[in-house]
Amino acid sequence: MKKQNPILKLLFGIIILVVAVLYMYPIIMIIFNSLKVETAISTNTVFELPRSDTFNGLNNFISAITRQGFLQSFFYSAFITVTSLIAILVCCSMCAYFITRIRSKVSSLLYYLFVFSMVVPFQMVMFTLSQTADMLNLNTPYNIFIIYLGFGAGLAVFMFAGFMKSVPVEVEEAAMIDGCNPLQTFFLIVFPILKPTIVSVGILEAMWLWNDYLLPTLVLDIKKYRTIPMLIQYFRGSYGKVEMGPMMASIVLTVLPIIVIYVFAQKYIIKGMTSGAVKG
């Protein structure tokens, strides 16, 4: 490598920084606006930075949390994401293990059904799914994870099965000979080997669960339970004046945790989210 001129290097660094800031501008803009008073957020003043007379401190955030039920929505979103994620990771890895290890017609039929379900657009099943959920009373945040397990199973089983094929059977056989039953073999031997795939599938499904809007809107009772995407949509969808300040604050509160997690787990997140694509 040839030595670089320090001035050129600095200039290059500045260019990179400018590109980064421009690309992130929509988010930076929302953060600035969430700090302004209501009257200063109109259509043509969005680009203005908060000034001393328009600065509103954290009042918008306080209002979003206390009056708009942000914390409750956050809880519902988090609860649904965590329970569904655990269900998907545990049940689907077991299912994928079974259908890769037992080669039979039923196994391959199941596998193709799972793959098929990945391609089907949600609109195809949305009405009947919400009716089925209502009929079985699976319409609260506390048991909606069963619906998510069913609808998220396709991708998870597909990815687990893809990885499982490359795991040698010998280790499992050794464990069985040493006296493990299949459940012990799975949880003590196979599950740890699956760790990288579990992280990838987990991230992919978690992003979907956290951001999903349509499924909870149709299944849950919107008056009682609102997840975060539903809350944001409700801000605009409800009639009357939209409170821009608290809405901006809610968007910031929604986006910031994701950015913080992303900063720390960037490598895993990028790998996890793209691994599904490359295999497909």
Binding site: S117, L129, T132, I146, I147, G150, F151
Partner: peptide, 8 residues
């Protein structure tokens, strides 16, 4: 879950 969430 798959039957409830997808097949049916």
């Amino acid at each position: 879950a798959f039957i409830i969430g997808f097949i049916v």
